[in-house]
Design a protein around this nucleic acid. Structure first.
Lengths: 299, 299
DNA sequence: CGCGTACATGAGTCCAACGCATAGTTGTCA
DNA sequence: TGACAACTATGCGTTGGACTCATGTACGCG
Protein backbone atom coordinates (compact mmCIF):
# COMPACT_ATOMS: atom_id res chain seq x y z
CA UNK A 1 0.00 0.00 0.00
CA UNK A 2 1.09 3.48 -0.86
CA UNK A 3 -0.16 7.00 -0.23
CA UNK A 4 -0.19 7.52 -3.98
CA UNK A 5 -2.62 4.65 -4.38
CA UNK A 6 -4.85 6.18 -1.73
CA UNK A 7 -4.85 9.47 -3.62
CA UNK A 8 -5.88 7.61 -6.74
CA UNK A 9 -8.74 5.88 -4.95
CA UNK A 10 -10.02 9.16 -3.54
CA UNK A 11 -9.88 10.86 -6.92
CA UNK A 12 -11.67 8.02 -8.67
CA UNK A 13 -14.33 8.04 -5.97
CA UNK A 14 -14.73 11.80 -6.32
CA UNK A 15 -14.93 11.85 -10.11
CA UNK A 16 -16.59 8.46 -10.67
CA UNK A 17 -14.17 8.01 -13.52
CA UNK A 18 -10.73 6.53 -14.02
CA UNK A 19 -10.02 8.83 -16.92
CA UNK A 20 -10.96 12.04 -15.12
CA UNK A 21 -9.15 10.97 -11.98
CA UNK A 22 -6.04 10.21 -14.00
CA UNK A 23 -6.12 13.66 -15.53
CA UNK A 24 -6.43 15.27 -12.11
CA UNK A 25 -3.48 13.24 -10.85
CA UNK A 26 -1.41 14.15 -13.92
CA UNK A 27 -0.86 10.54 -14.92
CA UNK A 28 -2.22 8.47 -17.76
CA UNK A 29 -5.37 6.44 -17.34
CA UNK A 30 -3.44 3.22 -17.63
CA UNK A 31 -1.08 4.13 -14.79
CA UNK A 32 -4.06 4.72 -12.58
CA UNK A 33 -5.74 1.49 -13.67
CA UNK A 34 -2.56 -0.42 -12.89
CA UNK A 35 -2.29 1.05 -9.44
CA UNK A 36 -5.92 0.53 -8.50
CA UNK A 37 -5.67 -3.04 -9.73
CA UNK A 38 -2.53 -3.61 -7.68
CA UNK A 39 -4.20 -2.21 -4.59
CA UNK A 40 -7.27 -4.35 -5.11
CA UNK A 41 -5.02 -7.37 -5.49
CA UNK A 42 -3.27 -6.50 -2.24
CA UNK A 43 -6.42 -6.15 -0.17
CA UNK A 44 -8.18 -8.98 -1.95
CA UNK A 45 -11.31 -7.08 -2.90
CA UNK A 46 -12.69 -4.92 -5.67
CA UNK A 47 -12.98 -1.32 -4.48
CA UNK A 48 -14.91 -0.13 -7.52
CA UNK A 49 -17.69 -1.61 -9.56
CA UNK A 50 -16.91 -1.00 -13.22
CA UNK A 51 -19.82 -0.93 -15.60
CA UNK A 52 -18.21 0.38 -18.76
CA UNK A 53 -20.26 3.56 -18.63
CA UNK A 54 -19.79 4.54 -15.01
CA UNK A 55 -17.63 3.64 -12.04
CA UNK A 56 -19.01 3.50 -8.55
CA UNK A 57 -17.68 2.44 -5.18
CA UNK A 58 -18.28 -1.13 -4.09
CA UNK A 59 -19.32 -1.77 -0.52
CA UNK A 60 -15.71 -2.54 0.31
CA UNK A 61 -14.71 0.65 -1.46
CA UNK A 62 -17.05 2.71 0.70
CA UNK A 63 -15.52 1.19 3.81
CA UNK A 64 -12.07 1.92 2.41
CA UNK A 65 -12.64 5.50 1.30
CA UNK A 66 -13.10 7.16 4.67
CA UNK A 67 -9.94 5.68 6.08
CA UNK A 68 -8.04 6.55 2.92
CA UNK A 69 -9.05 10.18 3.28
CA UNK A 70 -8.08 10.07 6.94
CA UNK A 71 -4.67 8.66 6.10
CA UNK A 72 -4.01 11.33 3.49
CA UNK A 73 -5.17 14.07 5.83
CA UNK A 74 -2.95 12.74 8.61
CA UNK A 75 0.06 12.59 6.32
CA UNK A 76 -0.55 16.15 5.17
CA UNK A 77 -1.05 17.30 8.73
CA UNK A 78 2.15 15.58 9.76
CA UNK A 79 4.08 17.60 7.23
CA UNK A 80 2.42 20.87 8.16
CA UNK A 81 2.79 20.41 11.89
CA UNK A 82 6.43 19.43 11.58
CA UNK A 83 7.10 22.64 9.68
CA UNK A 84 4.95 24.58 12.15
CA UNK A 85 7.19 23.38 14.96
CA UNK A 86 9.91 25.41 13.26
CA UNK A 87 7.58 28.38 12.96
CA UNK A 88 6.99 27.85 9.29
CA UNK A 89 3.46 27.65 7.91
CA UNK A 90 3.11 25.42 4.87
CA UNK A 91 0.39 23.72 2.91
CA UNK A 92 -2.51 25.06 0.90
CA UNK A 93 -4.98 27.65 2.12
CA UNK A 94 -8.37 27.45 0.45
CA UNK A 95 -10.20 30.76 0.62
CA UNK A 96 -13.77 31.29 -0.47
CA UNK A 97 -14.80 34.83 -1.29
CA UNK A 98 -17.90 36.56 -2.59
CA UNK A 99 -17.37 38.74 -5.66
CA UNK A 100 -18.88 41.79 -3.94
CA UNK A 101 -16.58 41.83 -0.94
CA UNK A 102 -15.81 45.38 0.15
CA UNK A 103 -14.94 45.18 3.86
CA UNK A 104 -11.32 44.29 3.30
CA UNK A 105 -8.90 44.64 0.44
CA UNK A 106 -8.30 40.96 -0.21
CA UNK A 107 -5.32 41.42 -2.54
CA UNK A 108 -3.65 43.59 0.10
CA UNK A 109 -4.34 40.98 2.76
CA UNK A 110 -2.89 38.32 0.51
CA UNK A 111 0.23 40.40 -0.01
CA UNK A 112 0.70 40.53 3.75
CA UNK A 113 -0.11 36.85 4.11
CA UNK A 114 2.24 35.79 1.38
CA UNK A 115 4.89 38.00 2.86
CA UNK A 116 4.58 36.35 6.25
CA UNK A 117 4.18 32.80 4.94
CA UNK A 118 5.77 32.43 1.54
CA UNK A 119 5.52 28.63 1.60
CA UNK A 120 1.74 28.54 1.56
CA UNK A 121 -0.10 27.91 -1.69
CA UNK A 122 -3.35 29.82 -1.90
CA UNK A 123 -6.49 28.65 -3.67
CA UNK A 124 -9.15 31.30 -4.20
CA UNK A 125 -12.68 30.28 -4.99
CA UNK A 126 -15.29 32.88 -5.81
CA UNK A 127 -18.89 31.98 -5.07
CA UNK A 128 -22.03 33.12 -3.34
CA UNK A 129 -22.31 33.12 0.43
CA UNK A 130 -24.54 30.07 0.58
CA UNK A 131 -22.23 27.86 -1.44
CA UNK A 132 -19.21 29.08 0.47
CA UNK A 133 -20.81 28.27 3.81
CA UNK A 134 -21.67 24.79 2.59
CA UNK A 135 -18.12 24.20 1.39
CA UNK A 136 -16.75 25.51 4.67
CA UNK A 137 -18.84 23.07 6.65
CA UNK A 138 -17.83 20.22 4.35
CA UNK A 139 -14.21 21.07 4.98
CA UNK A 140 -13.43 21.81 1.36
CA UNK A 141 -12.68 25.41 2.29
CA UNK A 142 -10.49 26.62 5.15
CA UNK A 143 -11.85 30.14 5.46
CA UNK A 144 -14.54 32.16 3.71
CA UNK A 145 -15.22 35.86 3.28
CA UNK A 146 -18.92 36.35 2.84
CA UNK A 147 -21.88 38.64 3.40
CA UNK A 148 -25.04 37.94 5.36
CA UNK A 149 -28.04 39.70 6.77
CA UNK A 150 -26.90 41.11 10.07
CA UNK A 151 -29.44 39.06 12.02
CA UNK A 152 -28.36 35.70 10.62
CA UNK A 153 -25.79 33.89 12.71
CA UNK A 154 -24.17 31.11 10.72
CA UNK A 155 -24.05 27.80 12.59
CA UNK A 156 -21.18 25.38 12.80
CA UNK A 157 -18.49 27.91 12.09
CA UNK A 158 -16.69 30.65 13.95
CA UNK A 159 -16.89 34.13 12.48
CA UNK A 160 -15.35 37.55 12.71
CA UNK A 161 -17.41 40.53 11.59
CA UNK A 162 -15.47 42.73 9.18
CA UNK A 163 -17.96 45.44 8.35
CA UNK A 164 -21.59 46.37 8.90
CA UNK A 165 -23.33 48.36 6.22
CA UNK A 166 -26.83 49.52 5.53
CA UNK A 167 -27.70 48.87 1.92
CA UNK A 168 -28.43 51.85 -0.27
CA UNK A 169 -30.86 52.28 -3.09
CA UNK A 170 -29.17 52.28 -6.48
CA UNK A 171 -30.87 54.38 -9.15
CA UNK A 172 -30.30 55.49 -12.72
CA UNK A 173 -28.71 58.94 -12.96
CA UNK A 174 -31.87 60.55 -14.32
CA UNK A 175 -34.21 58.98 -11.81
CA UNK A 176 -36.64 61.28 -10.05
CA UNK A 177 -35.49 60.11 -6.61
CA UNK A 178 -31.85 60.90 -7.40
CA UNK A 179 -30.56 63.64 -5.19
CA UNK A 180 -33.53 63.61 -2.82
CA UNK A 181 -31.31 62.68 0.15
CA UNK A 182 -32.23 59.92 2.58
CA UNK A 183 -35.31 58.00 1.51
CA UNK A 184 -37.19 54.96 2.78
CA UNK A 185 -38.12 51.60 1.30
CA UNK A 186 -41.67 52.76 0.78
CA UNK A 187 -40.43 55.43 -1.63
CA UNK A 188 -39.32 52.58 -3.88
CA UNK A 189 -42.69 50.84 -3.94
CA UNK A 190 -43.95 50.30 -7.45
CA UNK A 191 -40.55 50.53 -9.10
CA UNK A 192 -39.05 47.72 -11.14
CA UNK A 193 -36.17 45.89 -9.42
CA UNK A 194 -33.10 43.96 -10.44
CA UNK A 195 -31.70 41.63 -7.78
CA UNK A 196 -29.83 38.40 -7.14
CA UNK A 197 -31.54 35.10 -7.98
CA UNK A 198 -34.39 34.00 -5.74
CA UNK A 199 -33.51 32.33 -2.42
CA UNK A 200 -29.85 33.22 -2.51
CA UNK A 201 -28.57 34.92 0.60
CA UNK A 202 -27.85 38.06 -1.43
CA UNK A 203 -31.47 38.25 -2.51
CA UNK A 204 -32.75 37.38 0.93
CA UNK A 205 -31.38 40.61 2.35
CA UNK A 206 -33.68 42.77 0.26
CA UNK A 207 -36.61 40.36 0.21
CA UNK A 208 -36.76 40.27 3.99
CA UNK A 209 -36.57 44.04 4.28
CA UNK A 210 -39.43 44.64 1.88
CA UNK A 211 -41.50 41.83 3.32
CA UNK A 212 -41.21 43.11 6.87
CA UNK A 213 -42.23 46.56 5.63
CA UNK A 214 -45.18 44.86 3.88
CA UNK A 215 -44.16 46.20 0.53
CA UNK A 216 -44.72 44.14 -2.59
CA UNK A 217 -42.08 44.71 -5.17
CA UNK A 218 -41.55 43.59 -8.72
CA UNK A 219 -38.19 41.93 -9.32
CA UNK A 220 -38.23 41.76 -13.08
CA UNK A 221 -34.54 41.04 -13.52
CA UNK A 222 -32.41 38.44 -11.77
CA UNK A 223 -28.66 38.19 -12.18
CA UNK A 224 -25.96 36.48 -10.17
CA UNK A 225 -23.39 39.23 -10.33
CA UNK A 226 -23.50 42.70 -8.85
CA UNK A 227 -21.90 44.27 -11.90
CA UNK A 228 -24.60 42.81 -14.12
CA UNK A 229 -27.29 44.17 -11.83
CA UNK A 230 -25.61 47.57 -11.82
CA UNK A 231 -25.51 47.48 -15.59
CA UNK A 232 -29.26 47.00 -15.66
CA UNK A 233 -29.74 49.91 -13.30
CA UNK A 234 -27.43 52.16 -15.32
CA UNK A 235 -29.45 51.31 -18.40
CA UNK A 236 -32.53 52.55 -16.62
CA UNK A 237 -34.26 49.20 -16.63
CA UNK A 238 -34.51 48.83 -12.87
CA UNK A 239 -33.43 49.92 -9.42
CA UNK A 240 -31.81 47.78 -6.73
CA UNK A 241 -30.41 47.66 -3.22
CA UNK A 242 -26.70 47.08 -2.73
CA UNK A 243 -23.93 47.72 -0.24
CA UNK A 244 -22.49 51.21 -0.80
CA UNK A 245 -18.96 49.84 -1.18
CA UNK A 246 -20.02 47.50 -3.94
CA UNK A 247 -21.47 50.36 -5.92
CA UNK A 248 -18.50 52.65 -5.33
CA UNK A 249 -15.99 50.08 -6.46
CA UNK A 250 -17.93 49.12 -9.55
CA UNK A 251 -17.59 52.53 -11.17
CA UNK A 252 -21.07 52.05 -12.62
CA UNK A 253 -22.86 55.09 -13.98
CA UNK A 254 -25.55 55.20 -11.30
CA UNK A 255 -26.51 57.23 -8.27
CA UNK A 256 -27.24 56.03 -4.76
CA UNK A 257 -29.67 57.16 -2.12
CA UNK A 258 -29.33 56.30 1.54
CA UNK A 259 -32.17 54.30 3.00
CA UNK A 260 -33.15 55.01 6.58
CA UNK A 261 -34.80 51.59 6.82
CA UNK A 262 -32.60 49.66 4.42
CA UNK A 263 -31.47 46.14 5.39
CA UNK A 264 -28.22 45.85 7.28
CA UNK A 265 -25.61 43.52 5.88
CA UNK A 266 -22.56 42.15 7.61
CA UNK A 267 -19.48 40.99 5.82
CA UNK A 268 -17.58 38.45 7.82
CA UNK A 269 -14.70 36.06 7.88
CA UNK A 270 -15.79 32.52 8.71
CA UNK A 271 -13.72 29.45 9.47
CA UNK A 272 -14.16 25.88 10.57
CA UNK A 273 -13.90 25.96 14.32
CA UNK A 274 -13.39 22.20 14.73
CA UNK A 275 -10.20 21.69 12.79
CA UNK A 276 -8.57 25.04 12.13
CA UNK A 277 -5.51 24.22 10.11
CA UNK A 278 -2.26 26.07 10.55
CA UNK A 279 -2.68 27.90 7.28
CA UNK A 280 -6.13 29.09 8.38
CA UNK A 281 -4.97 30.23 11.80
CA UNK A 282 -2.23 32.23 10.15
CA UNK A 283 -4.75 33.83 7.81
CA UNK A 284 -6.92 34.86 10.73
CA UNK A 285 -3.95 36.59 12.32
CA UNK A 286 -3.19 38.51 9.18
CA UNK A 287 -6.79 39.64 8.77
CA UNK A 288 -6.92 40.60 12.44
CA UNK A 289 -3.78 42.67 11.98
CA UNK A 290 -5.04 44.27 8.79
CA UNK A 291 -8.46 45.41 9.86
CA UNK A 292 -10.85 45.70 12.74
CA UNK A 293 -13.51 43.17 13.48
CA UNK A 294 -15.22 41.31 16.21
CA UNK A 295 -14.79 37.61 16.80
CA UNK A 296 -17.83 35.50 17.42
CA UNK A 297 -17.72 31.93 18.66
CA UNK A 298 -19.34 29.15 16.72
CA UNK A 299 -22.97 28.47 17.52
CA UNK B 1 5.84 11.45 1.01
CA UNK B 2 5.26 7.76 1.28
CA UNK B 3 3.73 5.39 3.81
CA UNK B 4 7.01 3.52 3.88
CA UNK B 5 8.79 6.66 5.02
CA UNK B 6 6.21 7.10 7.77
CA UNK B 7 6.86 3.53 8.94
CA UNK B 8 10.55 4.31 9.06
CA UNK B 9 9.97 7.43 11.13
CA UNK B 10 7.80 5.55 13.60
CA UNK B 11 10.33 2.77 13.99
CA UNK B 12 13.23 5.15 14.48
CA UNK B 13 11.19 7.04 17.06
CA UNK B 14 10.30 3.80 18.83
CA UNK B 15 13.82 2.39 18.87
CA UNK B 16 15.77 5.64 19.12
CA UNK B 17 18.15 4.13 16.60
CA UNK B 18 18.49 4.07 12.84
CA UNK B 19 20.27 0.74 12.96
CA UNK B 20 17.66 -1.03 15.10
CA UNK B 21 14.82 0.49 13.14
CA UNK B 22 16.39 -0.66 9.90
CA UNK B 23 16.65 -4.20 11.23
CA UNK B 24 12.99 -4.16 12.24
CA UNK B 25 12.00 -2.92 8.82
CA UNK B 26 14.15 -5.56 7.12
CA UNK B 27 16.21 -3.03 5.21
CA UNK B 28 19.77 -1.87 5.58
CA UNK B 29 20.63 1.09 7.73
CA UNK B 30 21.69 3.08 4.69
CA UNK B 31 18.34 2.62 2.98
CA UNK B 32 16.62 3.97 6.05
CA UNK B 33 19.02 6.88 6.37
CA UNK B 34 18.39 7.78 2.74
CA UNK B 35 14.65 7.73 3.16
CA UNK B 36 14.59 9.74 6.36
CA UNK B 37 16.91 12.26 4.75
CA UNK B 38 14.64 12.49 1.70
CA UNK B 39 11.60 13.02 3.90
CA UNK B 40 13.34 15.69 5.93
CA UNK B 41 14.33 17.40 2.70
CA UNK B 42 10.72 17.30 1.52
CA UNK B 43 9.22 18.84 4.64
CA UNK B 44 12.15 21.19 5.13
CA UNK B 45 12.91 20.25 8.72
CA UNK B 46 14.99 17.79 10.68
CA UNK B 47 12.72 15.22 12.36
CA UNK B 48 15.47 13.70 14.47
CA UNK B 49 18.36 15.12 16.41
CA UNK B 50 21.37 12.93 15.80
CA UNK B 51 24.02 12.94 18.44
CA UNK B 52 26.23 10.07 17.30
CA UNK B 53 25.36 8.03 20.36
CA UNK B 54 21.61 8.42 20.46
CA UNK B 55 18.82 9.62 18.21
CA UNK B 56 15.89 11.54 19.59
CA UNK B 57 12.92 13.31 18.08
CA UNK B 58 13.22 16.97 17.35
CA UNK B 59 10.33 19.25 18.21
CA UNK B 60 9.18 19.00 14.61
CA UNK B 61 9.57 15.24 14.82
CA UNK B 62 7.29 15.07 17.84
CA UNK B 63 4.67 17.05 15.99
CA UNK B 64 5.09 14.75 13.01
CA UNK B 65 5.02 11.43 14.85
CA UNK B 66 1.42 11.41 16.03
CA UNK B 67 0.06 12.18 12.60
CA UNK B 68 2.34 9.59 11.05
CA UNK B 69 0.98 6.93 13.36
CA UNK B 70 -2.55 8.08 12.57
CA UNK B 71 -1.90 7.84 8.86
CA UNK B 72 -0.50 4.33 9.15
CA UNK B 73 -3.36 3.24 11.35
CA UNK B 74 -5.90 4.69 8.92
CA UNK B 75 -4.27 2.94 5.99
CA UNK B 76 -4.28 -0.35 7.85
CA UNK B 77 -7.86 0.16 8.90
CA UNK B 78 -8.84 0.95 5.32
CA UNK B 79 -7.49 -2.40 4.20
CA UNK B 80 -9.16 -4.32 7.03
CA UNK B 81 -12.53 -2.64 6.66
CA UNK B 82 -12.57 -3.12 2.92
CA UNK B 83 -11.99 -6.83 3.42
CA UNK B 84 -14.53 -6.87 6.24
CA UNK B 85 -17.15 -5.54 3.84
CA UNK B 86 -16.73 -8.83 2.03
CA UNK B 87 -17.05 -10.75 5.30
CA UNK B 88 -13.35 -11.47 5.49
CA UNK B 89 -11.39 -10.63 8.60
CA UNK B 90 -7.78 -9.71 7.94
CA UNK B 91 -4.92 -8.06 9.73
CA UNK B 92 -2.94 -9.00 12.78
CA UNK B 93 -4.46 -9.99 16.10
CA UNK B 94 -2.21 -9.31 19.06
CA UNK B 95 -3.07 -11.54 21.99
CA UNK B 96 -1.53 -11.23 25.42
CA UNK B 97 -1.70 -14.28 27.63
CA UNK B 98 -0.43 -15.25 31.06
CA UNK B 99 1.63 -18.43 31.15
CA UNK B 100 -0.63 -19.99 33.79
CA UNK B 101 -3.88 -19.67 31.88
CA UNK B 102 -6.16 -22.63 32.54
CA UNK B 103 -9.72 -21.39 31.91
CA UNK B 104 -9.63 -22.00 28.20
CA UNK B 105 -7.55 -24.13 25.93
CA UNK B 106 -5.90 -21.35 23.96
CA UNK B 107 -4.43 -23.56 21.22
CA UNK B 108 -7.88 -25.05 20.66
CA UNK B 109 -9.41 -21.57 20.48
CA UNK B 110 -6.74 -20.54 18.01
CA UNK B 111 -7.52 -23.57 15.88
CA UNK B 112 -11.15 -22.48 15.72
CA UNK B 113 -10.15 -18.85 15.11
CA UNK B 114 -7.70 -19.68 12.40
CA UNK B 115 -10.28 -21.96 10.86
CA UNK B 116 -12.87 -19.18 10.71
CA UNK B 117 -10.44 -16.44 9.70
CA UNK B 118 -7.46 -17.89 7.88
CA UNK B 119 -6.23 -14.47 6.71
CA UNK B 120 -5.47 -13.18 10.18
CA UNK B 121 -1.92 -13.23 11.44
CA UNK B 122 -1.71 -13.88 15.16
CA UNK B 123 0.90 -12.48 17.51
CA UNK B 124 1.05 -14.11 20.92
CA UNK B 125 2.78 -12.36 23.77
CA UNK B 126 3.22 -14.06 27.09
CA UNK B 127 3.50 -11.85 30.13
CA UNK B 128 2.14 -11.16 33.56
CA UNK B 129 -1.31 -9.71 34.06
CA UNK B 130 -0.07 -6.26 34.98
CA UNK B 131 2.07 -5.82 31.90
CA UNK B 132 -0.68 -7.18 29.68
CA UNK B 133 -3.22 -4.73 31.09
CA UNK B 134 -0.83 -1.86 30.51
CA UNK B 135 -0.20 -2.94 26.92
CA UNK B 136 -3.92 -3.33 26.36
CA UNK B 137 -4.59 0.20 27.51
CA UNK B 138 -1.74 1.51 25.38
CA UNK B 139 -3.30 -0.19 22.39
CA UNK B 140 -0.30 -2.41 21.69
CA UNK B 141 -2.46 -5.46 22.40
CA UNK B 142 -5.91 -6.18 21.02
CA UNK B 143 -7.06 -8.71 23.61
CA UNK B 144 -5.55 -10.22 26.72
CA UNK B 145 -6.18 -13.38 28.69
CA UNK B 146 -5.21 -12.76 32.27
CA UNK B 147 -5.87 -13.62 35.88
CA UNK B 148 -6.84 -11.29 38.69
CA UNK B 149 -8.12 -11.36 42.23
CA UNK B 150 -11.87 -11.75 41.92
CA UNK B 151 -12.53 -8.43 43.63
CA UNK B 152 -10.40 -6.34 41.27
CA UNK B 153 -12.28 -4.83 38.36
CA UNK B 154 -9.89 -3.63 35.69
CA UNK B 155 -10.62 -0.11 34.49
CA UNK B 156 -10.60 1.17 30.94
CA UNK B 157 -11.25 -2.19 29.33
CA UNK B 158 -14.18 -4.49 28.79
CA UNK B 159 -13.88 -7.99 30.18
CA UNK B 160 -15.46 -11.40 30.05
CA UNK B 161 -14.94 -13.73 32.99
CA UNK B 162 -13.77 -17.16 31.87
CA UNK B 163 -13.38 -19.02 35.14
CA UNK B 164 -13.44 -18.47 38.87
CA UNK B 165 -11.21 -20.64 41.02
CA UNK B 166 -10.21 -20.81 44.62
CA UNK B 167 -6.46 -21.25 44.94
CA UNK B 168 -5.21 -24.44 46.53
CA UNK B 169 -2.20 -25.07 48.73
CA UNK B 170 0.60 -26.82 46.89
CA UNK B 171 2.81 -29.05 49.03
CA UNK B 172 5.69 -31.49 48.61
CA UNK B 173 4.51 -35.09 48.38
CA UNK B 174 5.90 -36.00 51.76
CA UNK B 175 4.54 -32.98 53.59
CA UNK B 176 2.66 -33.59 56.81
CA UNK B 177 -0.39 -31.68 55.56
CA UNK B 178 -0.59 -33.79 52.41
CA UNK B 179 -3.77 -35.82 52.37
CA UNK B 180 -5.37 -33.98 55.26
CA UNK B 181 -8.31 -32.84 53.13
CA UNK B 182 -9.53 -29.25 53.19
CA UNK B 183 -7.35 -26.98 55.28
CA UNK B 184 -7.20 -23.25 56.00
CA UNK B 185 -4.61 -20.55 55.48
CA UNK B 186 -3.77 -20.62 59.17
CA UNK B 187 -2.57 -24.23 58.82
CA UNK B 188 0.14 -22.88 56.56
CA UNK B 189 1.42 -20.29 59.03
CA UNK B 190 5.09 -20.70 59.76
CA UNK B 191 5.88 -22.58 56.57
CA UNK B 192 8.36 -21.33 53.98
CA UNK B 193 6.73 -20.04 50.79
CA UNK B 194 7.65 -19.68 47.16
CA UNK B 195 5.62 -17.12 45.21
CA UNK B 196 5.63 -14.65 42.36
CA UNK B 197 7.77 -11.50 42.66
CA UNK B 198 6.56 -8.82 45.07
CA UNK B 199 3.81 -6.46 43.89
CA UNK B 200 2.88 -8.45 40.83
CA UNK B 201 -0.78 -9.23 40.52
CA UNK B 202 -0.02 -12.93 40.83
CA UNK B 203 1.66 -12.33 44.17
CA UNK B 204 -1.02 -9.93 45.30
CA UNK B 205 -3.61 -12.69 45.35
CA UNK B 206 -1.85 -14.59 48.09
CA UNK B 207 -0.49 -11.56 49.92
CA UNK B 208 -3.95 -10.08 50.28
CA UNK B 209 -5.42 -13.34 51.52
CA UNK B 210 -2.79 -13.82 54.21
CA UNK B 211 -2.85 -10.17 55.19
CA UNK B 212 -6.60 -10.10 55.66
CA UNK B 213 -6.30 -13.25 57.77
CA UNK B 214 -3.57 -11.46 59.75
CA UNK B 215 -1.05 -14.18 59.05
CA UNK B 216 2.61 -13.31 58.59
CA UNK B 217 4.31 -15.59 56.14
CA UNK B 218 7.84 -16.05 54.97
CA UNK B 219 8.25 -15.85 51.22
CA UNK B 220 11.81 -17.04 50.89
CA UNK B 221 11.68 -17.76 47.17
CA UNK B 222 10.42 -15.53 44.40
CA UNK B 223 10.13 -16.65 40.80
CA UNK B 224 8.24 -15.29 37.83
CA UNK B 225 7.03 -18.58 36.45
CA UNK B 226 4.61 -21.07 37.94
CA UNK B 227 6.66 -24.05 36.81
CA UNK B 228 9.71 -22.70 38.58
CA UNK B 229 7.70 -22.21 41.77
CA UNK B 230 6.30 -25.72 41.45
CA UNK B 231 9.83 -27.03 41.02
CA UNK B 232 10.80 -25.41 44.30
CA UNK B 233 7.80 -26.98 45.99
CA UNK B 234 8.51 -30.39 44.50
CA UNK B 235 12.06 -30.11 45.82
CA UNK B 236 10.64 -29.61 49.28
CA UNK B 237 12.03 -26.11 49.68
CA UNK B 238 8.70 -24.36 50.07
CA UNK B 239 4.94 -24.45 49.73
CA UNK B 240 2.77 -22.12 47.68
CA UNK B 241 -0.75 -21.18 46.59
CA UNK B 242 -1.78 -21.68 42.99
CA UNK B 243 -4.85 -22.25 40.85
CA UNK B 244 -5.68 -25.96 40.76
CA UNK B 245 -5.64 -26.03 36.97
CA UNK B 246 -2.12 -24.63 36.87
CA UNK B 247 -0.86 -27.39 39.12
CA UNK B 248 -2.71 -30.11 37.26
CA UNK B 249 -1.37 -29.05 33.87
CA UNK B 250 2.19 -28.70 35.07
CA UNK B 251 2.60 -32.38 35.89
CA UNK B 252 4.78 -31.35 38.81
CA UNK B 253 5.48 -33.95 41.48
CA UNK B 254 3.47 -32.23 44.22
CA UNK B 255 0.22 -32.63 46.10
CA UNK B 256 -2.52 -30.09 46.62
CA UNK B 257 -4.84 -29.37 49.49
CA UNK B 258 -8.05 -27.39 49.15
CA UNK B 259 -8.24 -24.19 51.15
CA UNK B 260 -11.58 -23.24 52.61
CA UNK B 261 -10.43 -19.61 52.88
CA UNK B 262 -8.04 -19.48 49.93
CA UNK B 263 -8.09 -16.40 47.68
CA UNK B 264 -10.44 -16.50 44.71
CA UNK B 265 -8.96 -15.80 41.33
CA UNK B 266 -10.73 -14.94 38.11
CA UNK B 267 -9.34 -15.57 34.68
CA UNK B 268 -10.76 -13.24 32.13
CA UNK B 269 -10.62 -12.06 28.59
CA UNK B 270 -10.07 -8.31 28.33
CA UNK B 271 -10.19 -6.03 25.32
CA UNK B 272 -10.01 -2.37 24.48
CA UNK B 273 -13.58 -1.15 24.47
CA UNK B 274 -12.84 2.11 22.65
CA UNK B 275 -11.47 0.79 19.39
CA UNK B 276 -12.22 -2.90 19.07
CA UNK B 277 -10.66 -3.92 15.81
CA UNK B 278 -12.29 -6.42 13.50
CA UNK B 279 -9.75 -9.08 14.39
CA UNK B 280 -10.51 -8.57 18.09
CA UNK B 281 -14.28 -8.70 17.64
CA UNK B 282 -13.91 -11.95 15.74
CA UNK B 283 -11.75 -13.36 18.53
CA UNK B 284 -14.39 -12.48 21.10
CA UNK B 285 -16.99 -14.37 19.10
CA UNK B 286 -14.80 -17.45 18.90
CA UNK B 287 -14.11 -17.41 22.63
CA UNK B 288 -17.79 -16.86 23.32
CA UNK B 289 -18.64 -19.86 21.17
CA UNK B 290 -15.93 -22.01 22.73
CA UNK B 291 -16.63 -21.53 26.38
CA UNK B 292 -18.94 -19.97 28.92
CA UNK B 293 -18.31 -16.64 30.49
CA UNK B 294 -19.93 -13.47 31.57
CA UNK B 295 -19.41 -10.16 29.82
CA UNK B 296 -18.74 -7.11 31.89
CA UNK B 297 -18.79 -3.59 30.54
CA UNK B 298 -15.80 -1.35 30.88
CA UNK B 299 -15.63 0.70 34.02
C1' DC C 1 -23.19 -2.03 -37.55
C1' DG C 2 -19.76 1.31 -37.26
C1' DC C 3 -18.44 4.87 -34.02
C1' DG C 4 -17.21 6.92 -29.70
C1' DT C 5 -16.13 6.38 -24.95
C1' DA C 6 -14.14 4.21 -21.18
C1' DC C 7 -11.51 0.68 -18.58
C1' DA C 8 -8.08 -3.36 -18.93
C1' DT C 9 -3.80 -5.27 -20.32
C1' DG C 10 0.85 -6.25 -22.28
C1' DA C 11 5.42 -4.49 -23.37
C1' DG C 12 9.04 -1.45 -22.83
C1' DT C 13 11.36 2.52 -20.33
C1' DC C 14 13.24 4.89 -16.64
C1' DC C 15 13.58 6.62 -12.06
C1' DA C 16 14.03 5.99 -7.32
C1' DA C 17 14.65 2.91 -3.48
C1' DC C 18 17.79 -0.31 -2.18
C1' DG C 19 22.31 -2.70 -0.91
C1' DC C 20 27.25 -2.36 -0.62
C1' DA C 21 31.20 -0.13 0.68
C1' DT C 22 33.19 3.39 3.14
C1' DA C 23 33.82 7.80 5.40
C1' DG C 24 32.95 10.64 9.45
C1' DT C 25 31.91 11.28 14.36
C1' DT C 26 31.83 10.29 19.11
C1' DG C 27 32.15 7.65 23.32
C1' DT C 28 34.94 3.87 25.64
C1' DC C 29 38.64 1.39 27.40
C1' DA C 30 43.36 -0.32 27.99
C1' DT D 1 46.17 8.92 24.03
C1' DG D 2 45.54 5.74 20.54
C1' DA D 3 42.96 1.77 19.07
C1' DC D 4 38.43 0.30 19.02
C1' DA D 5 33.51 -0.04 18.88
C1' DA D 6 29.10 1.80 17.77
C1' DC D 7 26.45 4.59 14.95
C1' DT D 8 24.93 7.61 11.12
C1' DA D 9 26.00 9.80 6.46
C1' DT D 10 27.09 9.33 1.70
C1' DG D 11 28.69 7.97 -3.06
C1' DC D 12 27.80 4.56 -6.43
C1' DG D 13 26.02 0.73 -8.99
C1' DT D 14 21.87 -2.27 -9.40
C1' DT D 15 17.07 -3.45 -9.84
C1' DG D 16 12.13 -3.56 -9.03
C1' DG D 17 8.17 -1.21 -9.84
C1' DA D 18 5.58 2.86 -11.45
C1' DC D 19 4.86 5.01 -15.53
C1' DT D 20 3.87 5.67 -20.75
C1' DC D 21 2.53 3.91 -25.05
C1' DA D 22 -0.08 0.95 -27.80
C1' DT D 23 -3.65 -2.04 -28.14
C1' DG D 24 -7.60 -4.94 -26.62
C1' DT D 25 -12.30 -5.29 -24.91
C1' DA D 26 -16.91 -3.97 -23.49
C1' DC D 27 -20.86 -1.17 -23.98
C1' DG D 28 -24.14 2.58 -25.41
C1' DC D 29 -25.83 5.20 -29.30
C1' DG D 30 -27.43 6.96 -33.73
Amino acid sequence: MDLQQLRYVVEVADTSSFTKAAARCFVTQSALSHQIAALEREIGTRLFVRSSRAVRLSEAGSAFLGHARAALRAAEQAKEDAAAADGIVTGTLRIGVIPTLTAIDLPAVLVAYRDAHPDVRVELRVGNSDDLMAQLRLGSLDVALLGLRHDLKPVGVATRALSTDRLVAVLPRWHELAGSGTISLRDLAGLTFADFPASTSGRLQSDTAFASASIERDVAFEADSASMILGLVAAGLAVTLLAPGTVARSGADVVTAELRDGPVRVELLAWDVDAPRNVAKAFLSVVAAAGPGEVSAAS
